[in-house]
Write a protein that binds this DNA or RNA. Structure first.
Lengths: 260, 260
DNA sequence: CGGTACCTTGAGGTTACTCAAATCCAGTGG
DNA sequence: CCACTGGATTTGAGTAACCTCAAGGTACCG
């Protein structure tokens, strides 16, 4: 029973941030040792989230700063009519809901696409750290401005690209993000369903499906349900390059966080 | 000759931030008196920009934090093929290029749509202030997270709305931003041309034109070239409400800055 | 083994785009 | 002050892309 506790991710700091396999991806990396000590003391490695469970709901008070440790999470908003609007997908290492830092309330929802684990720094501790350290503020500023640049790029592009390009970009972006996490960039599983992808890209399920099938017919990828196999990355890149600002859109925030 | 200097906006601080007519819109408002003293000492009220001139170019080193004082400015990026992608329009009181704070280099371009004046805080001074004041960092964090929320909302919406809705939102957004600046929200002049609007909304010139004409035919607005007269705001709001997250999209960042 | 949700495929309709031409407008020079 | 000119805007006709509606197929779970 007591070793259950040390083996699993229950409770407080059974592992330091430095030892975490995601350290290189996490913003903890950008902090100096003093701050990190404080961070280690505050961080809670939370109970895992089951697929379909929510990390938080829209309007809910922000409990803390969250970094995903495993699994994947869908961020979305709701329209007045109750329609979902998918705003992004989070992967391990991503900080979630940073844009609520100032308002202290979540503007959207976050739902686990599969069983997931995460770290949480209680907002009170985090605020205290922010007040004490201009450096930490700068790190946050940097994270946000990167996330900003990323979202801006996406905005510039989503409103004016055709379905093929959007889907190609989506695949490439995901692939690259996985690569950064040491997963195979050419063979992966989509943890979200077609509805989520379509919604995220501003397309319909049918168009996404047809587009994927089309890519397969052209020998660019192989799709079997949620499994994707990238066969011709160059061609995929070629498709995505259309009308893109020089900086690679799919190259999501370089340093440590961001969703997509 | 010497009074020319005090009358115009040349040179250094001939006016304090507190006296500025834009104070209520500017982020200077959120600073405490000590910081503001420093700010007043650093701020440069710059030479006016002529229509068509650039505030900065993409890739250029960030010279300082800029707040627009009069006129209007178009933000845009360039694609690999040299196509413009309009990312937003800045109005007096807006801070411009904040997302470059961390990278110190501008990711996009900023061009005056009409003769414009602006304040600039040299980046070195600003950085020093950031290091000294956690509070200022928090203000910046807040600004950015608001800008983030705004852009995110735009993103959610631009990729999935029809032309009528996009144009309606654009008009309403502009109208509300002008209202906040004590200008008539029902009668205003578009300082950007149709091409910029279309580009910003991810539409073509022709579609924007047709949509505006359509609104006029329906008695919602009156358009004569760049002059717009809102006749039926309720109907415009009704058009824009489609598929919107509860928070009003066009209600751009509440406090002090943001573009559009 | 059956059910249910997810995904694919097909046919037809709609919206916004493309290409082309006419009109309007601001700024210029006579 | 007016005519002129080039750019901006509007308008029209035809087309392509994506959406909608509908049906069939597939995979996973009890």
């Amino acid at each position: 029973m007591s070793d259950q506790r040390t083996l699993s991710e229950v409770g407080h700091s059974q592992e330091s941030c430095e030892q975490c396999s995601l350290f290189a991806l996490c913003f903890a990396q950008d902090m100096d040792s003093g701050q990190r000590e404080q961070l280690n003391a505050s961080v809670k490695r939370q109970q895992p989230l089951k697929r379909g469970e929510h990390l938080f709901h829209g309007g809910q008070r922000m409990k803390g700063v969250v970094v995903l440790r495993s699994g994947s999470i869908k961020g979305y908003d709701l329209t007045q009519d109750g329609d979902e609007i998918v705003s992004g997908f989070f992967l391990p290492g991503d900080a979630i809901g940073l844009d609520s830092l100032s308002s202290h309330a979540h503007s959207g929802f976050a739902e686990a696409l599969e069983d997931s684990r995460y770290c949480e720094i209680p907002i009170r501790d985090f605020e205290r750290m922010l007040e004490e350290s201009a450096r930490l503020n700068q790190v946050m500023l940097k994270l946000l401005s990167e996330e900003m640049a990323e979202t801006r790029r996406l905005l510039l592009v989503v409103g004016r690209l055709d379905a093929k390009t959007r889907v190609a970009m989506f695949l490439l972006s995901l692939s690259r993000r996985l690569a950064r996490r040491k997963q195979d960039p050419d063979r992966f599983r989509l943890t979200m369903d077609r509805r989520d992808i379509a919604n995220y890209l501003g397309l319909t399920i049918e168009t996404v499906s047809r587009t994927l099938t089309g890519f397969q017919r052209e020998g660019i990828i192989e799709v079997r349900g949620k499994l994707v196999n990238v066969l011709d990355r160059d061609q995929l890149v070629g498709l995505a390059r259309q009308a893109l600002p020089e900086s690679d859109l799919s190259e999501e925030a370089r340093s440590s966080q961001s969703e997509c």
